[in-house]
Design a protein around this nucleic acid. Structure first.
Length: 338
RNA sequence: GCUGCGGUGACGGAGUGGUCAAUCGUAACAGACUGUAAAUCUGUCGCCCGUUGGGGCUACGGAGGUUCGAAUCCUCCCCGCAGCA
């Protein structure tokens, strides 16, 4: 079976750093799984950091791999001799989503494997990683802008009623949290209204992916974590550092075309708060404070997500021999059936 | 010094005699998640006991008082802000 590594964990634990380290040791290439770093022009605030000690490498070291029509132009970063895919994929106006990510991810995964290199997926967007590795079964139903616009103004109760009418089974299968989540309700309605056109529809209102359509990989999932207070400190200093690097200027540039920005960009950590500042809604200090808090929340949510995946093997970055142990672990896995 | 307004749970801020351990927002904590996922949503949130119903204790600046009953009314004191001196 073909091998692949995933380096996961909350923001600011040093995933990229570790992944590059592993790539060098095991002849690998990286695939970034980050819902914000896919955007061009979102560099400083989104934290497209170079590994520690290698700062200063110009962005011009980015190559265009190929151009496609549509909003995409898939590029990759080169950090010394290590390639990182799926950074700077789309314009800030494009509404990027899992489906896009999976399409590109699979493509690059195969490409790296063909070169007989080790693919290393790095990223904090758990849903993307899951989508790429495990697949998601609703992918055949595309977004219906017209329907969404119509549903946008419905309140939760109306959406629930609508879904109940369209597909009761789906509604019944949702938990309380999701039933109160307009976004989930709208997507469920979207699927329900289209589902009759898809022969793969299952009774529960989901779409199945046939097992043989998915390739099986030998995956080593590495989780990076650290003590919470320590993580908060790391987040604080990262934010401060980004501010020094020109975060506000970066926000200003994007702010010029604010109306055109996708929701993803408008709401991304740091951007959202800095935009509030640029809109004169909050002071700069308050915006920075809110940015940090948003990062805390984000890291917490990531931990909740990753904790639920029992396949992940955790490493505490605070432990002294963390890297040594990590390499030992990866070696054992890499050589186990050779 | 006088006058006016105000002091509420970690913070902001409702409540102006009983249905108040006290709306709501934030923070905090826990969780969910199958096409916006750095998004969105859910739960908990004074302390103690109980598996639930529930029970007990301490609380609305402080001390007294009125009342069957007070965060809410009265008196005095302390503190903050505004205006007048």
């Amino acid at each position: 079976m073909q091998k692949l590594i995933a380096v996961l964990g909350p923001t600011a634990v040093g995933k990229t750093d570790t992944a590059i380290f592993l790539a060098e040791k095991f002849n690998g290439e990286l695939i970034s799984a980050d819902s914000v770093q896919v955007y061009k022009g979102l560099d400083i605030i989104s934290g497209k950091d170079l590994p520690a000690g290698r700062q200063g490498l110009p962005v011009s070291s980015k190559f265009k791999l190929q151009k496609k029509d549509g909003p995409y132009s898939i590029g990759y970063y080169l950090f010394e001799h290590i390639l990182i895919y799926l950074l700077d994929v789309v314009k800030p106006s494009y509404s990027f989503n899992v489906s896009d990510f999976i399409a590109f991810g699979q493509k690059f995964l195969e490409q790296i494997l063909e070169k007989e290199k080790l693919p290393i997926i790095v990223g904090g967007t758990g849903f993307y990683v899951k989508g790429l590795l495990d697949g998601i079964d609703t992918s055949p139903v595309p977004i219906d802008e017209n329907l969404r616009n119509k549903l946008k103004n419905f309140d939760v109760l109306s959406l629930q009623k609508f879904l109940l009418k369209e597909n009761k089974k789906k509604f019944d299968s949702m938990n309380n949290s999701d039933r109160n989540n307009p976004r989930r309700l709208i997507r469920a309605i979207e699927i329900a209204s289209k589902i009759k056109n898809f022969k793969l529809a299952s009774p529960a209102g989901r779409l199945k992916i046939k097992n043989d359509e998915r390739k099986e990989y030998d995956i080593l999932m590495i989780g990076l974590k650290c003590e919470r207070e320590e993580l908060k400190k790391r987040i604080d200093s990262r934010v401060d550092k980004r501010l020094k690097l020109g975060a506000i200027d970066e926000a200003k540039v994007l702010f010029k075309n604010y109306e055109k920005l996708s929701e993803q960009v408008k709401n991304a950590n740091g951007y959202r708060q800095l935009f509030e500042y640029l809109k004169n809604e909050v002071s700069l200090d308050r915006a920075i404070q809110k940015w940090k808090i948003a990062e805390y929340h984000y890291s917490k949510n990531q931990m909740t997500w990753f904790d639920a995946d029992r396949r992940i093997q955790w490493f505490d970055i605070g432990k002294k021999d963390f890297r040594k142990n990590l390499v030992k672990e990866v070696h054992a896995w890499y050589n186990k059936d050779i």
